[in-house]
Design a protein around this nucleic acid. Structure first.
Lengths: 367, 367
DNA sequence: TTGAAAGCGTTACCAG
DNA sequence: CTGGTAACGCTTTCAA
C-alpha cells in the first residue's frame, strides 16, 4: 500500500497518466507526470528562480543558459501554471465582461471587438450574461471577483444596480457600457440615445403621409430605452405631435414577443386599412415585427414603414433591410477595452465618459 | 520610508484602497484592504482550517461556530480566491471551448447550450476561436493548459491537428465536436454529414426542372464539408448525374466571399437565362448568395433554388427563408457538455462517439 | 470538532 | 548573472 502525505492527489496524478507518452522518466518513476518549474530546474541543474526568469523573459540571464533552459522547457512540453503565477503576481491577466444577453447580436459584436484588443494585449476575457436579472448580475460579479479578474466591463441592468455598487465600493476597476451614470467618478461608454430617438423621429416625420398612424414599440424598461423614447417624443412634440397620438406597445423583449404582438397591433391600430410608421427600439424586435406583418399579408414598406435601432450585422440581411439608428458596436468595444486597460494600469487616471453619436442608416424598410 | 518584504505588492494593495469604504479597521491600519482567509480566521478567533471548512460546507464543523463565521464572512464581503483554491485543489472548475469562429451563429448557439449546463454544474467556461488557423489553435490549447482548465470541447480544424494530438498525448479530457475521428479512443459528437449531403441532394433532385443547372458552393476544406459534398455527389450519381455535370465553386468562406462570387456564378453558369438549383454547405454563405442574386435581379425561388446547411437561428428570418439541412445545435451542445463532465469525473469511462442524424427543413428558398 | 503544518507552482526580494 | 527563500491564499492530512 502506497503511503504518501497527499495520497489522493498523487493518485489523481497517476490516473492522469493513462494514454500519455512519458518524456521525463525520472519524474515518472516517482508517479508524477505533470511537469512543473521544479522539475525543469532540476533537469537543468539551476535554481527555479532562473527558470522563472527565462519564463518571464527577464534580461538578467545568461544567453547561453537561457537557450539551454528553453530547450529543456520545449522538449518536456512544460506549460507554466497561470494559477500559480497569478496567485503570486496578484493579478490574473483576465478581465470580466458582464452583459445582459450573450446571444444578442449587438453584444456579440461588441464582445468580439473587445476580444481582439485583449488578445493583442495578452489579456484573457471571461464573459457571462445576467439575463436582465439583478440577482444573477450580482452573483456573476461576485464570482468574477473570486476569480480575481483584474477589471470589469459591464453593461448593467441599471447604473445603480447592486453589482455596480459593489464594484464601486470595493474600488475595483470597471467601465460601464451601454449605460451612462450621473456619478462623475464612473467611467462609461454609451451612445447618445436621446439624440438617437430624435434621429428616428426626424426621419419618420419627414416621410410621414396623411393620416398615417405612429406606433412605438419598446422592450425592457432600461435606461437606454427610456432615453430613446424620450428623444423620439421630444422631436415629435416639437412638430406638434403629442404623446397621446402615438400608440405605444411596451415590454416586447424577445423575437417571439415581437411575433406575438403583431395581431394585437394589426387589430388595435386598425392596420388592415391604415398605413403606419413604426419605431422599434431594437433591430432584433424590428425584424420580428417585419416578419409578422409580412405573414399577415401587409406590404412593406408601402403600407407600413419600420425604423429599428442598433444596426446589428443582420439588419442589412433580413427580409426587408432595416432603416435603423446605428450605435457603433466597434467603437463601443474598442473604447471600453482600451479605457479599462488604462484604468487597470493607472488607477488614478482621469475619468472618461463617452457618449457616442448615433447615426441614421437608410434602407428599404423606411427609405 | 516603509520597509516591507514585498513592498511593491503592498503598495498596489494600498492603491486599491482609493474609493473604498473600509470595514476592517484592523487590517486597514496595516495598509491591507483585500480580505483573505487569514483575516477572517483572526477576526473569528479560529484557525483558517476551520474557515476553509465552512467555505466548502464541510459537515465537520460545529453549527454555532459555522453561523458565527458565516456572518463574519458576509459582513466583510469576503470572496475566497479561486486562484488559491484551484491551485491547492489541482482543478479549476473551468472548461475550455475551442471553436473555429466565435462570431459564427452556429457555434454561438452551441456555446450557449453548453454554458447553460456548465452553469448548472458550477463550472466556468473559457472560449476562444482558432480562425481556421492551426497555429492559433495550438496556441489556444496551450494557453488553456496553462490556465489549468479541467477539460476541453474542441471543434478542431482537423481531427489530427496538432492541438488534438497534444491533448491526446498529455491525456487531458476532451471531446471533439463537429468532427469525427477514426481513433476508437476519441470521444466525439458530430452530425452525419454524408447523410446530410444526401438529404440535400434528394430534395434538390425531386424538385429538379428540365435543363436546370446544378451548382455546389463550398467553403474551407474541412472534413465536414468534404463529407457533405461526398453525400451530395453520391446521391446524384445514384440518379445518373455525374460529378462533372455539377458546377463547383470552392473556398467561399465568408459572407463577403459569398457576395463577391455572385457575378462569376451568373456569368459562368449563364444564370441570366438558365434556371438553377444551388446547394451551399453553410447557411451563412447561402444567405450571401441569396442576397447577391436578388440584387442582380434574379427572382427566388422561381429562377434559382437554394438549399443551405446548418439551420441556424437566422435561416428562417432571412430574405427568403432557407430550405436547409439541420444539425441540432442544441443536441450537440448538450451532449458535448454532459460527456465531458462525465469524462472529467471518471477518466476511465467508456468512449462515446455520436453521429447525430441531420434533418431536412423545408422553407421558401426551395419549397 | 478543531488546529498545526505541509503542500500547490509560481514570483520577487535580497544577498552574493 | 544566479541562488535561496518568503510569500501568494487556499486545502488537506494528521494528530489531538
Amino acid at each position: 500500500m502506497i503511503k504518501l502525505p497527499l495520497f489522493r492527489n498523487r493518485l489523481q496524478n497517476i490516473f492522469d497518466c493513462f494514454g500519455k507518452s512519458i518524456i521525463m522518466d525520472e519524474a515518472f518513476s516517482k508517479g508524477k507526470i505533470l511537469v512543473n518549474i521544479n522539475d525543469i530546474a532540476r533537469l537543468a541543474g539551476v535554481s527555479k528562480a532562473t527558470i522563472s526568469r527565462v519564463l518571464s523573459r527577464s534580461p538578467h540571464v545568461n544567453e547561453s543558459t537561457r537557450k539551454r533552459i528553453q530547450k529543456i522547457i520545449d522538449d518536456n512540453g512544460f506549460e507554466p501554471s497561470h494559477l500559480a503565477r497569478n496567485l503570486s503576481r496578484r493579478k490574473s491577466q483576465t478581465i470580466g465582461i458582464v452583459i445582459e444577453d450573450i446571444a444578442n447580436p449587438f453584444f456579440i459584436s461588441i464582445s468580439s471587438e473587445i476580444e481582439k484588443i485583449l488578445y493583442e494585449k495578452k489579456y484573457n476575457m471571461m464573459i457571462s450574461s445576467s439575463q436582465w436579472n439583478r440577482d444573477k448580475e450580482l452573483e456573476i460579479v461576485q464570482s468574477m471577483i473570486r476569480s480575481s479578474v483584474d477589471g470589469f466591463i459591464i453593461a448593467p441592468i441599471s447604473p445603480d444596480s447592486e453589482a455596480v455598487a459593489l464594484l464601486k465600493r470595493t474600488g475595483r476597476p470597471f467601465i460601464l457600457m451601454n449605460t451612462f451614470s450621473e456619478d462623475p467618478d464612473v467611467n462609461y461608454v454609451s451612445t447618445d440615445d436621446i439624440e438617437g430617438g430624435k434621429l428616428a423621429a426626424r426621419h419618420m416625420y419627414s416621410r410621414l403621409r396623411k393620416d398615417e398612424k405612429i406606433i412605438l414599440v419598446t422592450g425592457y424598461e432600461h435606461q437606454n430605452l427610456s432615453r430613446r423614447m424620450e428623444g423620439f417624443f421630444l422631436y415629435m412634440e416639437s412638430k406638434g405631435i403629442e404623446r397621446d397620438q402615438i400608440t405605444h406597445y411596451r415590454n416586447i423583449n424577445t423575437y417571439n414577443d415581437g411575433l406575438a404582438i403583431v395581431p394585437t397591433i394589426l387589430m388595435r391600430s386598425k392596420l388592415k386599412s391604415n398605413k403606419a410608421s413604426i419605431f422599434i427600439t431594437s433591430d432584433d424586435i424590428a425584424m420580428a415585427l417585419q416578419e409578422g406583418l409580412l405573414q399577415n399579408g401587409r406590404t412593406l414598406p408601402e403600407d407600413i414603414r419600420i425604423i429599428g435601432y442598433d444596426n446589428i450585422e443582420f439588419s442589412r440581411r433580413c427580409r426587408i433591410p432595416l432603416t435603423t439608428v446605428e450605435q457603433s458596436q466597434k467603437d463601443i468595444g474598442i473604447i471600453a477595452a482600451m479605457e479599462l486597460l488604462e484604468l487597470i494600469n493607472n488607477p488614478l487616471k482621469e475619468v472618461k465618459q463617452y457618449l457616442l453619436p448615433p447615426r441614421l442608416i437608410l434602407r428599404d424598410s423606411n427609405p
